[in-house]
Computed example of a mutant assay.
Amino acid sequence: MNFDLFAPEAQANVLPCDGVVEDFGLILTSEQSEKYFRYFLATLAWQHDEIILFGQHHKTGRQVAWYGDENYQYHYSGTFKQAHLWNPALFRLKQHIEKLVGHSFNSCLANLYENGTQAVGWHSDDEAALVSATGQETVIASLSLGATRKFSFKHKYTAEKVDLLLHSGQLIVMRGQTQQYWKHALMKSTRILEPRINLTFRYFF
């Protein structure tokens, strides 16, 4: 089945309760999406992610690249990630998304999945660095490029699930209490042979 035949429509909130995930639909044309995908695939500073899981060091199949306003470090999953200064095209895309979302971002964590066998398990983006001392809401904008993939949310207490098919050029934004009450995951699929890039724009305090 070609999922791209069914282009996503914008929705104010895909979650039924306890959070807000706004789906902006496709914010790029197919030509723009393809150009960005090919350019970022070739030029971003990709490297395999490293995490500490149950006290053991692991190197993931997916690759990551982290960019931001400064050469700072970001700590998660027991390891430190070093940020690169903005790639010019990535910075322009950030500015475009900021205007759509109405929120500023100072960093972008890019993820590269070579095919459907590479995925991310259930987790929340609730690190202390993403939450301000004043309790300002956590806002994360996520742009998909490349292969269409299934992205799911699961409520931490009721186990209710919400599934989305994220297309190339599609933007979703997680706001409010989403990270407090929901986990999310990129699901595996052996049918998907093409790569996908996910750009997650964040604000670190």
Rank of each mutant, 00 (worst) to 15 (best):
K156V: 02
E194R: 05
Y181F: 15
Q47F: 05
N111H: 12
Y157A: 13
E194S: 14
T79C: 13
R175Y: 09
Y67F: 10
F37H: 06
N87H: 15
F54V: 00
C108D: 07
S104G: 10
N13D: 14
R149Y: 01
V131D: 05
C17M: 11
P16M: 06
E194T: 15
S77I: 11
A83N: 06
G25D: 04
Q177W: 00
A110M: 08
A89V: 12
K94F: 01
Q179L: 05
L166R: 01
L166G: 03
D18H: 12
A42F: 00
N111I: 06
A110I: 00
F54A: 12
K161D: 00
T60I: 15
K154T: 13
F151C: 02
T190N: 12
L26V: 10
D126S: 10
I172Y: 02
A119G: 00
T138P: 08
W122L: 15
E127H: 12
K59W: 05
G102F: 00
T178R: 00
S144V: 09
T178S: 12
S30L: 06
K94P: 03
I52G: 08
G116R: 01
C108R: 01
Q180N: 12
Q136S: 13
S77L: 13
F40V: 05
A89M: 12
Y181H: 15
W122A: 13
E98Q: 14
N13S: 09
N13T: 00
T148V: 14
Q73E: 15
H57L: 12
T200L: 07
D163N: 14
L130A: 07
E50A: 10
I140W: 13
A141I: 08
H96S: 14
V162G: 03
E9R: 07
K35T: 11
V101K: 08
Q56A: 12
W46I: 07
E50S: 14
L90A: 06
A129E: 15
L28C: 04
E194Y: 10
A10D: 10
H184E: 11
D126V: 04
F80C: 08
S30T: 14
Q118V: 06
H58A: 07
V64N: 02
Q82R: 14
R196V: 06
G135P: 03
G176Y: 07
F91A: 04
M174W: 05
G61P: 03
P195L: 00
V173H: 02
R92Q: 12
L166A: 10
C17Q: 11
V64W: 01
T178G: 06
T158D: 07
F204G: 15
V21P: 02
A12R: 15
T43E: 12
V14Q: 05
T43C: 11
G19M: 05
W86G: 04
S124T: 12
V64P: 03
L112C: 06
L53T: 02
E70A: 13
F91E: 01
W66E: 04
E98T: 09
A129F: 04
L171T: 01
E31R: 10
L90T: 01
W122E: 10
A10I: 00
T158H: 05
E160A: 09
Y36I: 02
A119V: 13
K150V: 01
